[in-house]
């Protein structure tokens, strides 16, 4: 019985304490300042990838326009919806969900809050609600360039690809890259073997490292990854083996300056900034999917690549022009890739 009383006392104390503290309340809606809130995926804000890029884009946007930007970090997928809901509490002008895993949560929250605007990175809906904007990247274009560079630079005529999880987005990287390698192989008149494997995770760096180690020991000398945070394992492996890795999403050469050949950039920050700007300018961006590619400078490769032969870089830039002009149609799906490979074979 006494235990009960003591327990009741604890609960009462906490509740009372909370009442005294409710004085410091949430920032209320302020119409004069444009505000944006983003919710990260479970990779966290410092994932060296999407979440981090998006946040950098928002910070830059805030610096340039004086807008108010905030983020909420998710720990697990079941947090997404509650965090989005929390984001709506301060009535921001735009709420971002970072990554395609937000597809369902964004739909749910957008339906519950028809008076607010939402945007999602890396997802295209078949039927986009009027208050949601999908933002996608033609990552196959930068991956094609990465594949082309790998194909032109390889000494062993064996290259590797380490993917994250099977999805339409991941396919863009894989088949874009494979197609780029095939294009280079045709240009050089040799046969280049590509080893493809998925980590089945975006965070398991140890597993990604093991996969890359295996590829290097089987003779590959360049491995490209699109495995988010897990991809750091691939770069570590390249460092340990004295071979090359191709980074993804951001210029990852700082992780291993001597072992990163180049990176297939996905400038999420550029896209996030552009979309925020459009929203701020009062454009109606809802109900559609915006696609960003080489022509918007939203994907590409870094200008500084100290491990790359300058000649290869020049050629890669020519390829870039060909992609922008439409001369090269980069495949983004398995079907398109098979058709593309067949057309090269002729």
């Amino acid at each position: 019985m006494k235990k009960w009383k003591a327990a009741a006392a604890v609960v009462l104390t906490i509740v009372l304490l909370s009442f005294t503290l409710t004085g410091c309340s949430m920032p209320q809606k302020d119409d004069s300042t444009f505000s944006v809130t983003m919710v990260t995926s479970d990779g966290g804000i410092n994932d060296q990838s999407f979440n981090q890029s998006s946040w950098e884009g928002l910070q830059k946007f805030a610096e340039e326009t004086g807008s108010e930007v905030r983020y909420i970090e998710s720990k697990q997928p079941s947090d997404y919806l509650t965090n989005l809901d929390r984001a709506t509490d301060s009535y921001p002008d735009l709420i971002w969900g970072i990554g395609y895993t937000f597809a369902d949560p964004i739909l749910t929250i957008a339906k519950a809050n028809p008076d607010m605007s939402f945007a999602i990175v890396d997802n295209a809906y078949d039927d986009t609600p009027f208050n949601v904007t999908g933002v996608v990247f033609r990552a196959e274009e930068s991956s094609f360039m990465a594949g082309y560079i790998a194909g032109m630079s390889t000494k062993t005529d064996k290259v590797g690809y380490v993917g994250g999880m099977k999805s339409a987005i991941n396919d863009q990287f894989q088949y874009g890259y494979d197609a780029g390698v095939a294009y280079a192989a045709k240009e050089r008149g040799v046969k280049i073997e590509v080893m493809n494997q998925l980590v089945e995770s975006y965070t398991d760096a140890a597993k990604a490292k093991a996969i890359a180690n295996k590829m290097f020991s089987q003779g590959a000398d360049i491995v490209f990854h699109s495995a988010g945070g897990a991809g750091q394992g691939v770069i570590e492996s390249a460092k340990d083996n004295g071979k090359y890795a191709i980074g993804v999403d951001r210029d990852q050469s700082y992780l291993a300056p001597d072992n990163v050949l180049t990176s297939a950039l996905k400038n999420v920050d550029t896209a996030v900034e552009l979309v925020c700007q459009e929203k701020m300018d009062g454009q109606d961006i809802g109900g559609q999917t915006l696609s960003f590619g080489l022509s918007d400078d939203a994907v590409g490769i870094p200008t500084e690549n100290k491990n790359m032969d300058p000649e290869v870089y020049e050629k890669a830039m020519e390829v870039r022009q060909k992609i922008i002009s439409g001369e090269i149609k980069v495949p983004a799906t398995e079907e398109a890739y098979n058709a593309y490979a067949a057309s090269l074979g002729q």
């Binding site: 009960w4 983020y71 970090e73 984001a87």
Partner: peptide
């Protein structure tokens, strides 16, 4: 180790985990 205590400790824990997200947000 008390079963009843688990309810209180669980609420404390859940509160810290959930409230912690607004610590950063606000």
């Amino acid at each position: 180790g008390s079963p009843i205590g688990c309810i209180l400790a669980g609420l404390l824990f859940g509160g810290l985990l959930y409230g912690g997200q607004s610590l950063q947000y606000m």
